[in-house]
Nucleic acid binder design. Structure first.
Lengths: 233, 233
DNA sequence: AAAGCCAATTGACTCAGATCAAATTTGAGT
DNA sequence: ACTCAAATTTGATCTGAGTCAATTGGCTTT
C-alpha cells in the first residue's frame, strides 16, 4: 500500500469525477473536499480493509477492480460484489466494515478519514443525497444477486454474470465484444455460489457452442443474443 | 385494500413511532408530516405494489408482515426479505419498484405519496439521514443473505433463518421461545433458495432431534444453542 | 360430521452440481 | 528457453437437494 500525497489539482483531473460521490459537489465544495481525500495505491491481492475492522476511512475507487467478500468461519467465501471505478465503499452503521475488500490487480482509491468526511457531509445534503442514491442502487443490485444465487441454474448464473459484467464495463469504457475478466475463476465461482470446476466447465461448454471464445485475461462474446437467451432462462 | 383517513393524532399514537423513518422528526415536523401519510389496511395475500410498477408512493409498515419478492419470467420466485413494522419500503432510483410486496396476514401501512414526500425531505436532511441509515442497514442484511444463499447448506439455511427471524421478533415484542412463523413453508423455501419439501424435511429433522417443536403457526425453540451450532457450521 | 380444499409432510427416485483426482496450461523468476 | 508453482481444465464419481407422487392434517363450508 502506497500513499500518494494530495496535489494541487487532484479532483479536477480525476478520472471518476463524474460518476463518483463527488459529482454532487460544486466547484467551491470540491476544492474543500479535495483536502479530505488522499490517493492510495494497492498492489494485486492487497487487502484494503477487512470485515470486522473498525471503520476509519471511506473509499472511492479511482482505478482498478476490487473483490468484496464475506467469509464463513470454516473458510467458505461469498463474494458480494466487485467494485469498479466510481464505487464508494465503507458505509456502515456498526462502525465496523461488514465485508472485506481486496485489490484484483493494481488499484487506486481516494481515501477519506471517516470523521472529517462525516463532518463535511453534515452541511452538504446534496452529498448525502448522492450517497443515498449509491446505496439504493447497490441495494437493488444486491436483490438481483439474491435472485441469481437462490433461484438460477449454473448456466444461467454464468451467462448472467458475463452480461452483467460486460454491462458495467460498457458504462466505463464503451462497448466491446471483448470482455476482460481480471478476477480468477475462483472469484467468479465465489461470486456465483458455484465451484471453480463448474465455472470452468460452463465456460468450456459455452466456447464449444460457439457462443464465447476464451481469450487471455477474459472472453470474447461471439453471440451475445444466445448468452442473453441462456441468462433469461 | 381499505384506506383509513388520517385523523387528528395519528403519528403521536403510532406503534412504530420510535423505530420508523419518522423517529428523526421533531414534534413540529411530525405534525406536518402527519398530513402526508394515510393509513391503509391490506388483507392477507393482497399485493401492496408490484415489481416494475411506477412508484407513486412510499410505505412505512405499521403492523403485520409482508413478503418482498422478485419473480423470474418462468415463475421461479426469490423472496428478498420480509418486512416488519418500522420498515420503510419503496425507495428506488428508476422510478419503478424493483420488487413486489404483499401482505402475509393483515397489514397496516402508512402510505406517502411520492412527490410530497420528496418535497418534505428536501429541507429535512435529518430525515434523509434516517432513510440512508435504513438503506445501509438493509444493504448489510442483503449481503448476509447472499452468503446464506450462495454458500450455506439447507440445514444451515433453515437454522440461520429461525434464529434471524426470532431476533427480529425479539426486537419488536421481546424475547420468547415461541417463534411465530406467519409465512408459509413455500415462503420460507423461496426466501432460503430451497424447495418446500426440503424446508419441511429440515423442520421435521430438527423436531426429531428435539431441537425445536413444530406448533400451530410457528415453532418453539427447545434448544437455541444447538440451532446456533447448526447455523454457524 | 362429512366433504372439499389447500398446506404440509413423507417417501422413492433422479440429477445438477459438488467432490476428488489428474492432467494441462499459464506465468513469474532465473 | 527452463523450472516451478499456481491456476485452470478435464474426467470420474458421489451426494445433497430437487422432482415426482402420494398421504396426511387442518380448516372451512355445508
Amino acid at each position: 500500500m502506497v500513499a500518494i500525497e494530495p496535489n494541487g489539482n487532484f479532483c479536477s483531473d480525476c478520472a471518476v469525477r463524474g460518476a463518483a460521490v463527488c459529482s454532487s459537489l460544486d466547484a467551491a465544495d470540491l476544492r474543500e473536499f479535495e483536502h479530505l481525500g488522499r490517493r492510495v495505491h494497492f498492489g494485486s491481492g492487497e487487502t484494503v480493509f477487512s470485515e470486522e475492522d473498525i471503520t476509519t476511512s471511506f473509499y472511492n475507487v479511482i482505478e482498478g477492480v476490487m473483490r468484496l467478500y464475506k467469509l464463513l468461519p470454516d473458510g467458505r467465501r461469498q463474494i458480494v460484489g466487485f467494485a469498479l471505478p466510481g464505487d464508494f465503499l465503507g458505509m456502515n452503521l456498526s462502525g465496523r466494515h461488514n465485508f472485506s475488500a481486496d485489490a484484483i490487480g493494481a488499484v487506486t482509491v481516494c481515501q477519506f478519514a471517516k470523521a472529517p468526511f462525516n463532518r463535511f457531509i453534515e452541511d452538504r445534503p446534496q452529498l448525502l443525497r448522492r450517497i443515498n442514491e449509491l446505496a439504493i442502487r447497490e441495494l437493488s443490485q444486491a436483490r438481483d444477486h439474491m435472485v441469481l444465487l437462490g433461484r438460477r441454474s449454473a448456466d444461467e448464473k454464468v451467462a448472467t454474470f458475463l452480461l452483467g459484467w460486460r454491462e458495467r464495463l460498457v458504462a466505463l469504457k464503451g462497448l466491446s465484444d471483448k470482455v476482460p475478466l481480471p478476477m480468477s475463476r475462483q472469484d467468479i465461482a465465489d461470486y456465483l455460489g458455484l465451484t471453480i470446476e463448474t465455472v470452468s466447465r460452463t465456460f468450456t461448454k459455452l466456447e464449444r457452442q460457439g457462443v464465447i471464445q476464451i481469450i487471455h485475461g477474459g472472453i470474447s462474446l461471439l453471440d451475445p443474443a444466445r448468452v442473453e437467451a441462456m441468462a433469461a432462462a
